[in-house]
Design a protein around this nucleic acid. Structure first.
Lengths: 214, 214
DNA sequence: ATGGTACCATACCAACCGGTATGGATGGTA
DNA sequence: TACCATCCATACCGGTTGGTATGGTACCAT
């Protein structure tokens, strides 16, 4: 399977031998390999090769494979996806139509990002072996995203939404599950369901509710 | 532990007469070990030990590890979950309220079944390495379940649902994603969201729509 | 120069992997 | 009785795994 390590002396990168850039090299390589192969099927030799680094160098920055894995998951969640807390005021002022457009555009990005699909696979697949990482993912990605919708619904009593958290979940869950079964599980090749159809249906559910009471 | 001595007449089996119960032992053990550890982290030695069988016996029934894995996934989908096609007539006659109760009760079972959570983890986690298995899962589980809801909405034009497939997805997706982030990812320990709240919100969205036009 | 640090290259380790081989025990069938 | 397939037990195979050891090189601050 694995080929013998290359004999190329690679110093093509910066001569900065200081640790920070080396650590980043390792993390970036580990992200790629872990996302492609999962935890158990990823070998440290492969990570070292991908990083252009010797294996002992990895172990001088990370205690073991598990710590490296934790580091890359944190990199992919708290440091990257971490939904930058934009000002809430202008968002709260949006019309329901505009708000649907806003969150749709955010989920649409995830729909079309193969790397995010791999992260999703990894988080779900390893959630029993690494429950603390699943917790990080829930806290930094899921809850933060849903809180935005909850606040919006709470600020718009004219929508007559009795349970804003449940409604926020229905919105977010519809989009996430669409990505899961269409992109991650490959349902788009069996029975495609357009993102816009779900978006429009959600909009109808929310906005026609509004009309009913105005 | 205890081996069943009497074997019923297995006529349908052509080649191996004595093998059926052994094969089932292996499959059941493999289900347990694969669901607990994932594909790569499952060793054939461990499966053999769990089945109370020697490793060579496994290889006399299955060509290799991959074929055994495929067999257990098929066992867990087409042969087990396979939503038994009950008569559609009585279901189509249900009121929206009753229909929501019906599908809620079905998803509620999955919500509280740890083995199904593990199957979900396995399917999502291995969907890139075993796309054909993900396809089986989509065809036998997801699509069959959604078709029921699609037909119901199509049979109830008074609900004024413009896109029955999108609506069916919103219902199913809301429940599945709830299981995913509450049970599979452990969100219930961070921010619990009751199944009944989502159910009631969905009912409100569907039924109040009906009232509006009657 | 000196010492310290960060890295590379290679080799090495015990443990385990998927899978096979051999040889003996059992039990049903003819 | 003899046969034959199934299964057990053990040992074995080449290869890979996570992780370590050794020894050497380039750099940097003193």
């Amino acid at each position: 399977m694995t080929v013998e390590p290359p004999v190329t002396t690679n110093m093509e990168n910066l001569k900065k031998v200081h640790s920070r850039s080396k650590r980043d090299q390792i993390v970036q390589a580990a992200i790629k390999v872990f996302l492609e192969n999962g935890y158990k099927a990823t070998s440290m030799n492969r990570v070292a090769q991908e990083a252009g680094v010797i294996k002992a160098t990895i172990y001088s920055h990370f205690k073991d494979k598990e710590q490296l894995f934790i580091a890359i998951i944190e990199e992919l969640t708290v440091k990257k996806i971490d939904l930058n807390y934009e000002d809430l005021e202008p968002i709260m002022a949006l019309s329901p139509d505009q708000f649907i457009d806003l969150i749709s555009s955010k989920f649409s990005v995830l729909m079309n990002d193969p790397q995010y699909h791999r992260l999703f696979r990894l988080m779900v697949g390893e959630s029993e072996r690494f429950p603390e990482l699943a917790t990080i993912y829930v806290k930094t990605v899921i809850i933060r995203g849903m809180d935005l919708a909850i606040q919006y619904f709470d600020h718009h009593p004219e929508l007559r939404i009795e349970d804003s958290a449940a409604m926020a979940h229905i919105c977010a869950g519809s989009f996430v599950s669409l990505m899961a079964w269409q992109q991650v599980l490959g349902g788009n090749k069996i029975r495609p369901l357009e993102f816009s159809r779900v978006k429009n249906m959600l909009r109808a559910l929310i906005c026609e509710r509004q009309n009913k009471y105005t």
